[in-house]
Amino acid sequence: MSDSTDKILYCRCAFSQVVPVKTKEEVLEKLCDSGRDFECVSDLCEMSARRDDRLGELLEGDGKVKIAACYPRAVKWLFHQAGIPFPEDGSVEVLNMREDTAETISKGLLDE
């Protein structure tokens, strides 16, 4: 179950439109309607390319981290490439907006 200590991270994939627009718009809408706190980034790839220190902060937290972005394999190694170890203990869950529906992603993020 998701709880308020879980961190929600949403990637907009703004620098290249490879995530379906409809999916990312609907997921963001659900997120904004939920009343939950969230972290949104313009583009995880862009941050990884710059080896942005904020990537490390985004994975920090007491609870689980849920990331709405793209393929889990890509997301995991994007963090790694930026020098940020990606936890393998199940504390980070990646939801794939390139493949799954907005409904599935939102449910995974918010446990509606």
Binding site: R12, L28, C32, G35, D37, E39, S42
Partner: peptide, 19 residues
Amino acid sequence: RLALTANLLDQGYSVSRVS
């Protein structure tokens, strides 16, 4: 909240909603 967040992200900002 939605309009603001979407617009800011599309301009390259990072956005956090904090309660």
